[in-house]
């Protein structure tokens, strides 16, 4: 318990700094991006790379990977047919479920949301995430048969 309470302020420091820093590029975008939307997109991507922590990037990559996998399965199902429908549901819902769980983890641990979840520590979030994922995959493998 003492370990957790000691860590919480350690986490909060970069976020407070980040909050200050994120305001600055936004203002700069507003002032500079007047012409095209592509420029805005580039700016925001650049901004993301500049501001996001490694963990956030890791989670985002994982989620993108899940989306691609889910879409591929859906296309396969539409093209080839849904014959082992339980297998399709299992495979598809494993990607969807994992996406949702990862999204929850991201919301709870994102540096910008710390104030929203004062009682939820990052360790607690990770623990919930792992237990939830294990239950999800247990169900999925039973469903696929």
């Amino acid at each position: 318990m003492s370990k957790r309470s000691s860590k919480v302020p350690a986490m909060s420091t970069p976020t407070s700094i980040k909050r200050e820093t994120t305001l600055e590029p936004k203002q700069s975008i507003k002032s500079t991006s007047t012409s095209t939307s592509s420029l805005t997109l580039c700016q925001s991507v650049h901004n993301y790379w500049a501001s996001a922590t490694t963990k956030v990037k890791l989670m985002d990559t994982f989620m993108a990977f899940l989306v691609v996998l889910g879409v591929l399965q859906f296309i396969f199902c539409v093209l080839v047919g849904n014959f082992p429908f339980n297998a399709f549901l299992g495979g598809f819902s494993s990607t969807v479920g994992q996406f949702v769980l990862t999204a929850c983890l991201r919301i709870q641990t994102s540096p910008s949301n710390v104030q929203q979840f004062p009682q939820v520590s990052p360790e607690r979030s990770l623990g919930d995430f792992i237990v939830g994922s294990l239950i999800l995959h247990f169900a999925v493998y039973h469903f696929i048969n």
């Binding site: 986490m11 989670m59 995959h137 999925v140």
Partner: peptide, 28 residues
């Protein structure tokens, strides 16, 4: 296809958890 996908998700998830735990809190 679906079996491969489900296995891939699990493998990717294990890898994700591993990297997540050991990535540390590098600031942006």
């Amino acid at each position: 296809v679906y079996l491969t996908s489900a296995v891939t998700v699990v493998v990717a998830w294990i890898a994700f958890v591993f990297f997540y735990v050991y990535s540390g809190n590098s600031p942006p």
